[in-house]
Simulated scan of single mutants.
Amino acid sequence: MTARDTDHTRPSARPLEGRIALVAGATRGAGRAIARELARSGAFVWCTGRSTRSNPSDYGRGETIDETAELITSEGGQAEALVCDHLDRAQVDEVVSTIDARHGRLDILVNDIGGEAYVDWGEKFWTTDFDAEMRLFRAGLLTHLNTAHAALPLLVRESGGLHIEITDGTQDFNDTHYRESIYLDLTKTAVSRLAFGLGHELAEAGGTAVAVTPGWLRSEMMLELFDTSEETWSADALDPERSVPPADFAISETPHLLGRTVAALAADPDRHRFNTRTLSTHELGRVYGISDIDGSLPDAWAFIGAKEAGTPVEASDYR
């Protein structure tokens, strides 16, 4: 058991009691953590994704959507898993119909499906395998459009609905930095822009749309990619004898900081003040007095900015 799996007893305060949430892409990483934290705060969480025990991930991951729901119920929460390929409009429609039939409402929609596993680094756009690389764009953006289009009629049935896009990078960062992949760069900036546009349209129905970005994320995939663990990531990042993880990984955060800030935002009766914005976990953590499970509140984007400006930085000063 890793640190990410601890401290999940049922909290005494459950501000989302009675709320209905859909987390699209809840199989692993950020989506799983968001689903768990929403449930810990009292929401009934519908967890969707493609990976099941009988039909595992197409990029070699072992986590399943069933496990996410089981984790939630083992922690005293309420959740159900629905297998759904969010590129298939009929499957997304079926998910929304199921939620409608059970509850007649949807209060929180989180679009978390990523696609970063499909990035092919180091290729110029015109030399890439277009069809292969478009998997990222379809997984990371078209799934969000499909899900929003199908679910928003249910979300706006009652005033106060919240739509959250999970992205990568603050607006300031993405405005001035290129992600070294056309497909990734377009996908992540478009996700933030989707929240911006939907915020304008949802406002008329009393709803709110925002995008939320973590910093360096210590997901299962990242820990394995960098051949490190939840117990050793900090020492490994600062070890001059190692090429991975990169030194900047010392400013990383667990997916549960993202989950906790999303849950706090959903419980905030004044959340509309953030409408259309892209928010970082650090900013939301400061607003709501929330920290990561180790008690820190990493500010990866300020750390990166200071480093690029030539300011001497220590990761510990930004945690």
Rank of each mutant, 00 (worst) to 15 (best):
T98L: 04
G215E: 09
P15C: 03
T128Q: 04
S181R: 07
F130G: 00
L258M: 14
I304H: 02
S229P: 04
T176H: 15
P298S: 11
F44T: 12
L265V: 06
G42P: 04
P245K: 06
L238P: 00
R157Y: 10
R286T: 15
G305A: 13
T311I: 15
T6Q: 09
K124I: 10
K188A: 04
A235K: 14
D5C: 04
H177L: 02
L71W: 09
R271I: 07
E180P: 00
E201D: 15
T311G: 12
I99Q: 01
Y59T: 09
F249M: 14
L257G: 11
E231W: 06
G207A: 01
V287K: 00
S181Y: 08
Y183A: 10
Y183D: 09
S234H: 12
D5M: 15
L202E: 08
W216V: 11
S54M: 01
L257F: 09
G169A: 06
R193E: 13
L194A: 09
A35R: 07
A306Y: 02
A263D: 09
V92Q: 03
R319N: 09
S243K: 11
A69I: 02
L217E: 11
G77Y: 12
G285D: 02
A24G: 12
E308G: 13
N55E: 09
E224N: 12
S74A: 15
